[in-house]
Design a protein around this nucleic acid. Structure first.
Lengths: 156, 156
DNA sequence: AGGGCGAAGGTCAGTTAAGGTCAAAGTTTT
DNA sequence: AAAACTTTGACCTTAACTGACCTTCGCCCT
């Protein structure tokens, strides 16, 4: 429904689009004032919507004259998202992170909307009814990985 | 005699007809209030009356600012393979038949090669090790069906 | 130099606001 | 009567948001 978070995200993305550099710099308190919210709300948005999984990098400095810089990671060099993929698969599989990842590679046009939608089906818990959480995660991981790899192999 | 479900269905379809986009967005609680029913009733209507089989796609988000979006999907050449799809899903699920089906719709260009490859991953027995044959088949069926529907409904 | 102060930003736990699932009970159709 | 469909309520998961408290940094002032 377009929450506050959505608005702040949109605002920052607009700033990024306008910016001549590959980043924007904001003041947390300013943003919070602009949107009449708690400063920590800004951190929330940054964590959720500008995560590395989605292709962003956030840098900041505290203290007087502090700032927050948000980088759009540019041209994935064909390697970067693959790294993200590998990293996502390291450790326990988390559907939420996989979803973030999907969103990112969709934006980067690594796959089509249809393909992304199909991949996301694999992450829907409901299909795994009857299985324990562990089994379900394990399967999701296997299928997600195998599908992704299948895509990578067939280049078009 | 027009049940509650009928009314809600009708209402949503009216909204869709009016909408300038190819979807409508609702709040579950609002609808429930409007029709004085349990919120879960809305899910029921969505499941029964706005299923992919009937040409709809439902998207939602939980949490604050959550929503439910209902897309009307138009798909053009549908009918031919659609019957084959239904038939394939009738009775016990057999990966071999599913593969045949894939081959066919690939030839008919309903799917891209990449998409077909992704789909075929779901049919590979190896990913389901640890599960009984029944569980495995059940899962394959669910995932295959859901993926197929997701793909076919997102032509936009 | 160094201690203190104010100005950033960071964290985290807790609250609120959605939507989802499932099974049981009630209705209608066959 | 059986099968299919409808309704509801109890319980669950996820996302958004806030406030209290913490850390870091620059700039004084002595």
């Amino acid at each position: 429904m377009a929450s506050l978070t959505d608005h702040i995200e949109e605002y920052i993305k607009k700033l990024l689009a306008i910016s001549t550099r590959n980043y924007v710099e904001i003041q947390r308190a300013d943003l919070a004032r602009k949107f009449s919210c708690a400063p920590s709300q800004v951190n929330y948005v940054l964590n959720r919507r500008f995560s590395p999984e989605r292709g962003y990098l956030v840098e900041s400095r505290r203290g007087g004259g502090g700032y927050i810089r948000i980088y759009r990671i540019v041209h994935p060099q064909a390697e970067t998202w693959k790294d993200a993929f590998r990293e996502m698969l390291a450790g326990p599989f988390e559907p939420a992170r996989a979803k973030q990842f999907l969103k990112r590679i969709l934006e980067e046009k690594v796959l089509s909307r249809r393909e992304a939608r199909m991949m996301s089906i694999l992450l829907q818990e409901e299909h795994y009814r009857g299985l324990s959480r562990e089994e379900s995660r394990e399967l999701q991981k296997r299928l997600f990985q195998a599908s992704m790899e299948a895509i990578l192999k067939s280049s078009y």
